[in-house]
Design a protein around this nucleic acid. Structure first.
Lengths: 139, 139
DNA sequence: TCTCACTTTAGACCGCTTCTAAGGTTCGCC
DNA sequence: GGCGAACCTTAGAAGCGGTCTAAAGTGAGA
């Protein structure tokens, strides 16, 4: 059973066939899909699933805190089922592919007190950008 | 004369009245505007300027590397005329206020080779989040 | 079995951005 | 200055990601 489904069930969330397919699609890969990519892959297993259901379901998973929503420059949102918040993201400037990466230091420590403008800083996300092997070969 | 206009001129970029107004609007504030906010402010000085021109011009400035395009977790992109690429952003989770900050380390150095998944990594941006003094006081 | 709350669906709708086609402006060159 | 080519601006249409609506379907508990 999908681990994400287990986590969702704990919220007393009704696990319908549609929701199961969406959860398993999200979790089945180590890349982060857009909503439309999730829809496309879910359709392979359940052709009649609707766009609205995919959007609703993804938003509900985000609201439950079991999925993280990532919005990046000029592209569509992507969904990360990884509950471990201690990771960052690597994005291909060519095709938008997104992967998780683990850096070795905590970026909050890199920000000196006099650069904090009086803020209480609670989190730091690092976005690495570059070209994936496929896009580099195509260039 | 606007410093951004000077920098743009160096690219052999034709400085039309519209482009000048847009550049000066961008640079005249320390806030990062959305395209529509730029349009609105440009219209105060040049009422007949068109939406397409604002969008085109902002995109061209970004392509020239003189303006940075930012997408916060919200809807529309914002434009940062600060050509110094060596800075990051601090965002208030309460009110959305965004400020530039300077960190002491280069995040790319903290990403081990075996976490790069074959990518050619060219840049890293850090987004710090927290609460600004006003929002902390209000909470 | 009945009921009522929850879920799914198709398609309309919305906001931001880009594209298109037409007309205007500027520049180099003579 | 006059000319032509390249460039720029414009209004409006179109595209796209995402949300909303209204109606139909589903299912757990009384």
């Amino acid at each position: 059973m999908s681990d994400l489904v287990t986590r969702l069930r704990r919220h007393n969330w009704r696990i319908t066939p549609q929701r199961r397919v969406i959860a398993e699609t999200l979790e089945g890969s180590h890349v982060h899909y857009t909503a439309d990519e999730v829809l496309e892959r879910a359709c392979e297993r359940m052709p009649e699933i609707s766009r609205a259901t995919v959007y609703n379901t993804l938003n509900e998973m985000v609201a439950l805190g079991e999925v993280i929503e990532l919005s990046l420059q000029g592209r569509s949102k992507r969904y990360d089922p990884n509950a471990d918040h201690d990771h960052h993201h690597l994005i291909c400037d060519g095709c938008g592919l997104m992967k998780d990466v683990h850096a070795v230091a905590d970026p909050i420590e890199w920000l000196p007190g006099d650069e904090r403008h009086g803020f209480t800083v609670t989190s730091a996300a690092v976005t690495y950008r570059g070209l994936c092997p496929d896009c580099r070969a195509a260039a």
